[in-house]
Amino acid sequence: MRYWSLLFALAAIISVGIFAYAPISPEWWLPAGPNVSAGHLHSVSSAGKQIDSLFVIILLITGIVFIGTQVALVYATYFFVDKGPNGRKASYFHGSQRLEVIWTIIPAAILVFIALYQMGTWASVKFRSAAPKVQPLAQVTARQFQWVIRYPGEDGKLETKDDLFMVNDLHFVKGKQALIYLKSSDVLHSFFLPALRIKQDAVPGLTIPVWFDTDQAGHYELVCAELCGWGHYKMRGNVTVHETQEEFDQWLQSALKEQSRDQVAAVVTGSQGR
């Protein structure tokens, strides 16, 4: 009968094993940047690094609690099993005030610690007062089922005639804070950059600032994380992080040129114009 405890032990060991293995597998761990093959398994954004370290701290704390409780459970189910009429009797007690106090105060302290410890990170990634004082990169309007991204043109201002309109194509520069204004034109969507740990719902009727950065140039993916209708899964965006501002400006110029095209091109590039 006591061997049932081994089932619970096995489940706990496998669970711990899975989480012990996860950090060394790029497909299991928190999504990394574009240079994942080079062994960079950490996040590549400043918010992401803080979030990852918080994640690891919580993982360790919960891991310890998990192992502790499972050991107790397995121990109890192994050693206190009924051994028939001749076995020992169950001990008779109704509880212990001291224990109750201990296991109320210690978890409470840990939980309050976690809660307070992360306040700073939360404030720095979401509070509007923490938004970087930079020229906005773009206005991102989610619609079923694409991201309409509107970059300020030469005048550097949004909502003017020289804005560049792109679909599913977000560009910004490495090492610079990118600030976008997130809107929705129909239903709820959610702007999710897994590699940068950024997520924010796009809400009909609201304009929400979102900011992020990264220290690795390359290609990333933009995900819609809030159910938005039949084509929800299709709502993927390409993200390109440019090495330098010049590279970005160059791209912007060529895209603007394509957008103002008034002739049939000799070669149809077919990549940027709307």
Binding site: L54, I58, I61, R197
Partner: peptide, 17 residues
């Protein structure tokens, strides 16, 4: 225990939805 990850707002930012 997995609920604690979600309760931590910054971590929730990544694992929400």
């Amino acid at each position: 225990l997995s609920g604690i990850f979600m309760a931590a707002t910054p971590v929730d930012m990544h694992i929400h939805d």
